[in-house]
Design a binder for these strands. Structure first.
Lengths: 145, 145
DNA sequence: CCCATATCGTGCGTATACGCATAAATTGTG
DNA sequence: CACAATTTATGCGTATACGCACGATATGGG
């Protein structure tokens, strides 16, 4: 079973390729691929706390904070103290942030198109399903057993 | 098609989950998940140049160099000048590096098992195939058109 | 009401990841 | 054989990614 060794590597290769490609595409807009993920997460609905954000984008609080500091400096995001919890902060997109998100979504369209062009719709659905199963299995680490 | 938005995120989530999990597992051995990928690549056959290594592990020369410096300091890898090309260096595992690779392979077995436990063998094959197609499509960026 | 415990954000240290620039060496061409 | 173009490794700067520890605040029991 060579597959056993290859699957983790293939996952890595695919992710890194997507990341590199996206970073390159967004470079002229001064936004990184990861920042786009964050902006996209913020673009749907209400303000989130940094903790919620971290969970949504599969990252951790320290990383999210560092990203938010940069995004805030660039005027794409604003952080306000949480109305009910003095420990927390609510994060939301500024008007510029919303515009940038739209722009980035368009700029990245051809990359998404390429992803779907190399497989059938059924394969794409299958891939999504399997990736989610995989992530689910790998995240149930600290199983209480 | 929500799938369109989800696939890139699912790929990211799955990769990061694998990476975190592997890092945590290898932490007590003082080796990172990425270093393991590099050691694994070196464990098969002949010595490689840093450039070849970068290509194999889907990374870039700068990153590989930084990793090799650390691995060399830890005595897991050795770099010698290339016999035929004075610009290049050949990289190979030391005896300790080989032992460490074996140890890491075993330590990571249960993670690989979990990956395969959450899907059928056919699904795993399909996943591998699709990830490769994806990486292939995403890497043909600079198409000469 | 008070305290032990848990949670939120922050700061710090280390390891990738990658673009860009540069020095050194090799290759291809005339 | 000389020279331009290419290739290899390196160094530098920036942005993640994450663990760990800390201060501030919330929360649940007694």
């Amino acid at each position: 079973m060579e597959t056993e060794r290859e699957l983790p590597l293939a996952l890595r290769a695919a992710y890194l390729a997507l990341h590199r490609r996206t970073d390159a595409r967004f470079a002229k807009l001064e936004v990184t691929a990861d920042q786009f993920v964050l902006l996209a997460s913020l673009s749907e609905g209400r303000a989130l706390t940094q903790r919620e954000l971290a969970s949504r984008i599969s990252s951790d609080p320290s990383t999210v904070r560092a990203m938010l500091v940069l995004l805030e400096e660039n005027g794409l995001v604003q952080r306000d103290s949480h109305p009910a919890d003095a420990r927390a902060k609510t994060v939301s997109l500024t008007a510029a942030g919303k515009r940038m998100h739209k722009k980035l979504w368009k700029a990245g369209q051809s990359i998404r198109d390429e992803m779907y062009a190399c497989m059938s719709a059924e394969e794409a659905d299958m891939l999504l399903l399997l990736l989610r199963k995989l992530a689910g299995a790998l995240n149930d680490e600290v199983v209480l057993v």
